[in-house]
Design a protein around this nucleic acid. Structure first.
Lengths: 192, 192
DNA sequence: GGTTGCTATGCAACGAGGTGCATAGCAGGA
DNA sequence: TCCTGCTATGCACCTCGTTGCATAGCAACC
């Protein structure tokens, strides 16, 4: 179960409350790991009991107090152990692929709208990622390529960037494939 | 919940027992939808109760009898209804992405072996897909492109093929991205 | 002045998914 | 001869994930 570890990583990148974590999972992290606020509160409570995270009550003006969580030593150790252990390549759940194969026993052309809708979602996400990349990682320094003069490598930043590049590659692939799907479905539409 | 529908699609493609379904989910279907035999037996029992599938006892020699399931009218109707309803783009769970971002707070170089292992899995899957594509979908007819002379379009076959092409595109993308990850991790290794 | 919406946390219940284990006959190898 | 492994189905249990609901103060809008 990696939700624990996803939360730990997020808290290491920046401490925050359950509510703030939930919003991060909606935004950036949510693109490769989803979680509702319920799960997050539950896991935070458990990790607090296990001494993996520390809590600090933060009074706020004009809004309810929040509990700011940060990673304790035991949490860091647990994360290290998890990082060192091999994980199985993730199990996949592609509803749309099931639908496409199922369409053979129904009306293939009726699926066109649904596929176009998914394509739109992926185009939007791609635009979102590219905007985030331009904002957070900007242009490369150029001028003779990377050198020691660029300062020490920032692992956190570099690794966030490579994960984002993965998201970009994924969305681009999906768009190309969904176009392929639309072309395939279109052949049936014209065939009748 | 799409496991019901994944099973219905599989049974429409070819009736079979729970055991056979479980093996299909390990092989071809399992690449875009995983399920254990436990889930499958449970769902089959429920669908039988709901009249979605028909059962037929098939005695076998030298091995236990099996129950062969096939899709009933009610099941077909349920599938049609599901196909017509919009689904949300699937929620993702990329353990490896969590690990990569988490590596910033540990030893990035220690992740190289794990990433290489995943890369190997994806190369193997790609080879498996390509072999399956060559076997089941062979070479295009060529000679003037597709024409009415190729016979009526086989929806089942065409749609299975486009899903398989999606799997191939996914594996290719993953391999390219994992090489990117390895290059990124390598920069830290040499940087220390 | 009432409604809507945001921050912030949490309980209760349900459904989905996964692990371990059990049964049971037959085949094949050590 | 024993052990392993395959076909075939299933129970019990536990965890994970999701939905609905509740509370509660403040801000903004109509």
């Amino acid at each position: 179960m990696a939700l624990d570890h996803a939360i730990l990583v997020s808290l290491l990148e920046k401490p925050g409350s359950g509510y703030e974590l939930a919003r991060r999972f909606e935004r950036s992290i949510g693109y490769f790991w989803t979680a509702t606020h319920q799960q997050i509160y539950r896991v935070l409570k458990r990790m607090e009991g296990d001494g993996w995270v520390d809590v600090r009550d933060v009074p706020q003006h004009g809004r309810p107090d929040k509990k700011e969580y940060s990673v304790a030593d035991a949490g860091r150790a647990a994360l290290s152990a998890w990082l060192a252990a091999p994980i199985e390549p993730e199990s996949v759940r592609h509803d749309l692929a099931v639908k496409i194969r199922g369409a053979a026993f129904d009306d293939p052309a009726a699926l066109v709208g649904e596929v176009e809708r998914h394509r739109q979602v992926h185009t939007d996400r791609l635009a979102h990622y590219l905007a985030g990349e331009a904002r957070d990682f900007g242009e490369p320094p150029a001028e003779g390529g990377p050198s020691a003069a660029d300062g020490p490598l920032d692992a956190e930043r570099e690794l966030q960037h490579v994960v984002l590049r993965g998201g970009i590659a994924y969305e681009r692939m999906m768009i190309v494939w969904l176009d392929d799907v639309l072309a395939t479905l279109g052949r049936f539409e014209t065939a009748r």
